[in-house]
Design a protein around this nucleic acid. Structure first.
Lengths: 218, 218
DNA sequence: GACAACATACCAACCAGTTGGTATTTTCTC
DNA sequence: GAGAAAATACCAACTGGTTGGTATGTTGTC
């Protein structure tokens, strides 16, 4: 993921070099504090190239969110948590995976679109929408695992006092992780985020406790 | 909480008018995108007054975080959740209260220090530390309620497989709320944040389920 | 030779911070 | 407690560097 490799390599287009640089720069300094010159310098291209590929800095923000979606969806598609047979195990393995990758420096494991959405939600509709699409799109990849686990174990909380759904729990996992990132940033390290991930895993286990897996033949 | 009232009132010092303006402005536009001129205009003072009271924009950021701590600690001290006799009820009432105040426009109910920490964590140690102090300080006000609930109900999870503590759960509540704010910002409304607050309340109830309150005389 | 992909040179607006000054309050002195 | 001295609070105008964006090339490719 080093920038030095891509910024000097002429086989990678300026557009891709800028987008790669944007992922690191925005996660480090935030969107507003990241200047167009910063991105050009990090990508090893000139301003002319930047504005050839992006109409404005806001347009770069939208493209960066979409690029982030592409990169992360590939990353999570290759992750091992999908291989479990049991849907509930897949959900728990997903949370464990998210916990495991809380390593290295903060800009390496925190979320681009969470950071951007927080910053520009009142100033750029386009960027905010792209961030929402990225987060909600990722949540949608684990929602079916939650739904399958619920069905397999006869869990139907929709009608209860304060009901919940597979979609709601999937988005809640993202909320917990985003909040864990904020605490990690405030405290300068991932330790506190790991604890929140543990609480999240414990919550999911408790939700499904006393709900045995139904056999295939009833 | 209207700025118009304070910005024109000569009996309120320029410093306080600037700090009040900062709470709204930074929550709306973020710290970096908020200019010193923005704050002066909103507060109805000049730049000279600003730099008389604050050495730099960063110093204003630190002061704003401290001002936020003062304002919010007063707000939460007056909240009704403290009045419950049962410590567990106090914790649950706290979460319910946090859910109830998710109303109005986003800048009115989102968290200043969470927003700032996310933005400046790699660029301003001083602001980051002030944000951490504010968040951790608030978590510390509900930690004793959690601890009392655990003791009263004989819950001692410290030694178990993935242990947790009152401090850990108290900080987790903050993580969930901070993450809920991010999703709310991405989606443009508080609805999703309410659902995360519901999940959090459900988690706490499940943690204490099957742990009856011990009587005073054994 | 047309068109995309870049580079160079430049600009107007903006931004954090400064300067040099005045009004108001507080403190010190007798 | 009056009046000088000093500190504080505030203001209007200015500055040097920065920022997003543009106008005008140059180069490579089909």
């Amino acid at each position: 993921m080093s920038n030095a490799a891509s910024s000097s390599n002429p086989r990678i287009s300026a557009r891709d070099k800028i987008l790669d640089a944007a992922l690191t720069a925005i996660r480090t300094k935030g969107f507003t504090a990241t200047t167009v010159d910063d991105l050009c310098a990090a990508a090893g291209v000139t301003k002319g190239a930047f504005f050839h590929h992006f109409d404005s800095k806001d347009a770069l923000g939208v493209a960066a969110a979409q690029h982030w979606s592409k990169v992360t969806s590939g990353f999570f598609a290759d992750a091992p948590y999908h291989r479990h047979d049991d849907p509930l195990e897949r959900v728990l393995a997903y949370i464990a995976f998210r916990r495991d990758i809380l390593q290295g420096e903060l800009p390496e494991f925190t979320c681009l679109v969470g950071t951007m959405a927080q910053e520009v939600h009142q100033t750029s509709r386009a960027i905010t929408a792209a961030c929402d699409a990225s987060m909600s799109g990722h949540a949608a990849t684990i929602e079916p695992y939650v739904a399958q686990a619920m069905e397999q174990r006869g869990l139907d909380p929709a009608g209860s006092d304060t009901g919940w759904s597979a979609a709601s729990l999937a988005l809640h996992t993202q909320a917990v992780l985003q909040g864990a990132f904020i605490l990690a940033k405030a405290k300068g390290g991932p330790a506190i985020a790991e604890e929140s991930a543990d609480h999240l895993a414990r919550y999911v286990r408790l939700l499904f406790a006393n709900h045995q897996k139904k056999g295939k033949t009833p």
